[in-house]
Design a protein around this nucleic acid. Structure first.
Lengths: 149, 149
DNA sequence: ATTAATGCAAACGGTTTGCACTACT
DNA sequence: AGTAGTGCAAACCGTTTGCATTAAT
């Protein structure tokens, strides 16, 4: 798990008969400065900050390609939007506070017990990067106004 | 945790100044025969099976009301769609196999370790009904064709 | 010269909105 | 009569598609 090799990406694309384009450069530019997770539309936004002419379909199609190359992986955030993880950060899930909307990483370490017991008990292999645990963070647990849980 | 009290629902609505309508009857009809989780569009579909004239907005608006009354709770499925849980089934999360698309319940029991350690370590209170763990089920773990994980 | 990739526009699916109308209380 | 709820249609958001055009190889 070393840092993603963005430098060699153009060559790896060409090695597969794929192409290195200005549009892909912009997205890779954004991704290479991204830690952790982002949604597709956030990426689109950030690409547009650099190149306002960026088109959604191009971004999404390029993300597909990058996922095939193993540069990113996608999952689903708590609100259901596509969420891309820039690899290869340590495999982790997410905690999402339904009260304040905050989000935190869930380390493989913390999830280890669950991961093990599901594997042992059911043969189910957890893909931690797709895991989002929703609940209430410590700060929000005492808060009034959302008791209806 | 007894069975949801659908019988008294009309009265409970009226007690709040809300109303009991034929459209709501259809949805409640569907819900009362539903175990576990369904997506909004599945509910819409099932309502239309009974009453083809069912309108989406009515279903979604009624689901909001029912959630306020505590009859259902919503979360997000692995693919990001709204997922409604008919209460008060035992609080549980879901396992979703990314290979075969299968889905299984994750009991509070099985998640207990994680729930405890998050509470202890971070003060984070898990809302299990919002939890979907994605991965690969035992049957799919040996299967070829999706090694790229 | 090939053919991958783009831009555009339109469609998608699930959900939400505004508003005039209906019907429960 | 009052107002919650409905039906309709249109908008929404993020994402995906088809297709003619452009441009990397």
């Amino acid at each position: 798990m070393t840092a993603p090799d963005w430098q060699s990406l153009p060559d790896r694309l060409r090695a597969r008969g794929l192409r290195w384009t200005p549009q892909r450069r912009v997205l890779v530019d954004v991704l290479s400065r991204t830690r952790g997770h982002v949604t597709g539309s956030q990426l689109l936004e950030r690409c547009r900050a650099i190149e306002p002419a960026t088109i959604p379909s191009t971004v999404y199609r390029t993300l597909d390609v990058l996922e095939e190359l193993g540069m990113v992986r996608h999952g689903h955030a708590a609100d259901g939007r596509e969420e891309f993880h820039v690899l290869p950060e340590a495999d982790h899930g997410h905690l999402h506070c339904g009260a304040c909307g905050g989000s935190w990483d869930l380390s493989a370490n913390e999830a280890d017990g669950l991961v093990r017991s599901l594997r042992a008990g059911r043969g189910f292999v957890v893909d931690l990067s797709h895991v989002t645990i929703v609940g209430r963070c410590g700060a929000c647990c005492g808060e009034p106004g959302t008791e209806g849980w």
